[in-house]
Amino acid sequence: MGPLLAFGFWAYVLTVAGIYAIFVLGLQVHVGDTGLLNFGHVAFMAAGAYSTGLMVTNGVPLLAAIPLAMLVAALLGVLVGLPTLRLRGDYFAIVTIAAGEILRIMIQNQQGATGGTLGLRKASGGWPSFNRDILRWFEDTLGIELERRVPLLVITWLVALVIALLLVRIGRSPWRRALRAVRENEDAVAAAGKPVFQLKLQALALGAAIAGVSGVLFTLLQTSLYPENFEPIVTFVGFAILILGGIGSYFGVVLGSILISFIISGVRFLDFPLAADKVAALRFVVIGLIIMAVMAFRPQGLFGKKEELHLD
């Protein structure tokens, strides 16, 4: 493996990490800020990805498709939330996985529109040619030969940074105080005259829109979309990141996503005396053990505050 190829590979791993970071920032709004145990988060990513893909393959320009894709993800959040947000926490968790699976199965079966298991091709629309333009500009004007994955890597992390900064800013608002109060005790919030249901619905929509962004970037990275990209396991990897970084900590999300992405994609690069599928299994054993160890010994995660840990 040459060094250039290796660099391209790491750029890929880090882009995936950035996409996960955005995905989990959305999850943080649900779980960390509002106490909504959303186990179907991947559905919002899928909504962002497939609505981008379906719009661009039907002639909508990519730049117009992106905000619409976020809107679709947010609307899906509202749609899922309306019947489920009044349920008890453990019921909500299961029902959200179910909602995510319903969406995935529908995508899989609507072959005419989505390509089903054969995949939705050219889902990133004008992105590849735009990417080539960027690379050419760098080469022609600055004389720098960029690896082809670098532009998306930079864009992804810029987007992640902007979202994280916005969330930090939102964090100081009375709105988030009300969300945190919902997380602590809904009765107390209702007794204080705050509309609990609306607050939860808004948080669900915001986190869903953020996950929608991760879906857009995923589409740009992969170009083709397959239903199996959006299995429930993605949500649980998101939870592993959230737990490792610390529930309630935005910075923890960033670090957690790099660590976990390295474990998922990165170990492929290391030389194991094992067959590829065994390595694949092994890395999920490691992720499982990390989740267990963090939950047992440091439930607030690496960067969470013990006083604000809300796992009860």
């Binding site: 054993v285 499982g288 989740i291 939950m295 047992a296």
Partner: peptide
Amino acid sequence: MQMLLLSIGLAFV
């Protein structure tokens, strides 16, 4: 929730 997430880890393993 702590126990629930632990069981998810166990499931992976």
